[in-house]
């Protein structure tokens, strides 16, 4: 077997603190939501470290905490216990330093702004000069292949183009970390394939670290250098798979035995999580 296997426990970070190349490191990270039906353990003792330049997918059924983990990195949720460091900083410090760009499930474009004005939104907030804004808008619009649509309003674009615009917006201020929460979940399969291969090219060109939440096994295997399999109740990491696929990935790589082997392992990991739930 060509797969190099690491388990969740072996990915735990040492007490010495994160290595310089570590972008995200979580140690015993737990998050419990208090609800009317009692506490919900969205994350339970998650240990994980993500290196610079990695493309990490989080996959698992609904309620496994994959989105919550992403939101915790983004300082949109507060952990109940454990530590989480982004570039050696707390999530709050990282957010204040604008260390990451976040792409949501929906494009969340502001309908009263043109596409270029939407891309300019973070730049305006972060106080870039007009010239700098124009330069960055042009560069990121080129990057997501949306040149020519600068003056359009969001409703004039298809769903896939809107999501590309929201990726451009997340890239505009050059954060090294890109957090993507099922960005293509609402799109049809053909558009999704297309955007997946574009995203890989974009990743290769920009050398960013990407955390990518998905429901889709092929999507996770196709995109990632590392796949984090999660399971619900309590939300936890059940398997971490280092992908052995080459960096160059044409769409038909998805028919190779190597690809299918990784996909099978992901599927096994998801099934294991489910049987746990049934016995619990």
């Amino acid at each position: 077997m060509l797969l190099s296997v690491t388990t969740a426990s072996s990915a735990a970070i040492e007490d010495k603190g994160p290595l310089p190349a570590t972008v995200v490191s979580a140690a015993d990270l737990s998050l419990t939501f208090a609800t009317n039906d009692g506490p919900v353990h969205a994350l339970s003792n998650v240990n994980l470290s993500i290196g610079k330049g990695e493309f990490v997918s989080f996959i698992g059924p609904s309620g496994c905490g994959k989105t919550t983990f992403l939101r915790t990195i983004a300082d949109l949720e507060q952990p109940t216990s454990g530590t989480l460091l982004i570039n050696g900083m707390t999530p709050r410090q990282a957010r204040e330093k604008r260390a990451y760009g976040y792409v949501f499930q929906a494009p969340a474009l502001y309908p009263w702004r043109t596409i270029e004005k939407n891309v300019a939104l973070p730049l305006e907030i972060m106080g870039y000069s007009a010239a700098e804004q124009a330069e960055r808008i042009k560069r990121t619009m080129d990057l997501v292949n949306l040149s020519g649509f600068e003056k359009k309003y969001p409703w004039q674009l298809s769903g896939g183009m809107q999501q590309r615009a929201s990726i451009a917006r997340a890239l505009a201020f050059d954060a090294d970390l890109l957090l993507m929460d099922e960005p293509f979940g609402a799109l049809d399969e053909i558009v999704r394939d297309h955007l997946n291969s574009e995203l890989l090219k974009l990743w290769a060109r920009t050398q960013k670290t990407i955390c990518f939440v998905t429901h889709s096994i092929p999507e996770a295997v196709y995109l990632s250098t590392k796949i984090v399999v999660m399971s619900p109740r309590p939300g936890r990491v059940t398997d971490v798979i280092e992908s052995t696929l080459p960096a160059e990935r044409p769409l038909d790589i998805r028919e190779t035995p190597e690809f299918l082997a990784i996909a099978a392992r992901v599927r096994d990991g998801l099934r294991a999580g489910h049987s746990y739930e049934e016995h619990a």
Binding site: A74, D75, L76, R95, E96, R98, Y100, G101, Y102, F104, Q105, A106, A108, Y110, W112, L121, P122, E124, I125, M126
Partner: peptide, 29 residues
């Protein structure tokens, strides 16, 4: 404004006045 539109402002570390003028105010028109 929807939750993700507000979350977006949060990820940019936008000040309350920026959130008001760039999101809440135009959304309320």
């Amino acid at each position: 404004p929807e939750a993700i539109q507000l979350d977006l402002m949060h990820t940019y570390n936008a000040s309350p006045s920026q959130t008001f003028w760039k999101l809440r105010w135009p959304a309320s028109v």
